[in-house]
Computed example of a mutant assay.
Amino acid sequence: MDNQLLGDLFFSPAQPLAGADLDDETLLQFACEEFPEKEFCIVRRWMLIDVILSDDEDRQVRSSGLRPTVIYAQAVTTKAGTKAEAAHGKLSGFQLRFEGCFFETQDMLYILAGRGSRKFASKPTVFALADLCGSGLWNTYENRPVNNPA
Rank of each mutant, 00 (worst) to 15 (best):
T78M: 12
P13D: 07
W46T: 09
G116D: 03
G116M: 07
T125M: 00
F35Y: 14
K119M: 02
E33L: 09
N139H: 07
K79H: 08
R144S: 08
I111E: 03
Q4V: 15
R67W: 02
P145N: 00
G65A: 03
P68N: 08
V126N: 04
L96E: 13
F10D: 04
D131A: 08
G114I: 06
T26V: 12
D23M: 03
A121Q: 01
D55H: 06
L22H: 15
T77N: 08
G114C: 05
G134V: 00
S117A: 06
I42V: 03
P68M: 01
D107A: 13
K38S: 13
W46F: 05
E104M: 14
C41W: 03
L53G: 07
T82W: 07
H88R: 13
D50R: 11
A84P: 09
L53Y: 01
A31I: 03
F120G: 14
D55I: 11
T125Y: 06
L53W: 00
L27A: 01
G81L: 01
E33N: 10
I111L: 09
D55V: 15
N147C: 11
D24S: 11
W138P: 00
A75E: 15
V70D: 04
A86H: 15
A14D: 06
Q4C: 15
A31S: 09
L6M: 03
E85M: 12
N3K: 12
A75Q: 15
V51P: 09
T77Q: 05
S54K: 03
S63W: 11
K38W: 14
D23T: 04
A84R: 15
F103W: 04
N139Y: 13
G19E: 01
S92R: 05
A128I: 05
L53A: 06
Y72W: 02
E37G: 07
K90R: 15
A86V: 13
H88N: 15
K90L: 14
L28Y: 00
F94Q: 10
R118M: 10
R97C: 11
A150E: 13
L66N: 14
F98A: 15
D131Q: 10
L66K: 11
N143I: 06
E57V: 02
Y141F: 12
N147Y: 10
L132T: 05
I42K: 00
F35H: 06
P145I: 03
A20P: 15
D8W: 12
L132F: 09
A113G: 09
A128T: 00
I42S: 00
N139I: 12
R118D: 04
A14Q: 05
E142K: 13
F103Y: 11
A14W: 02
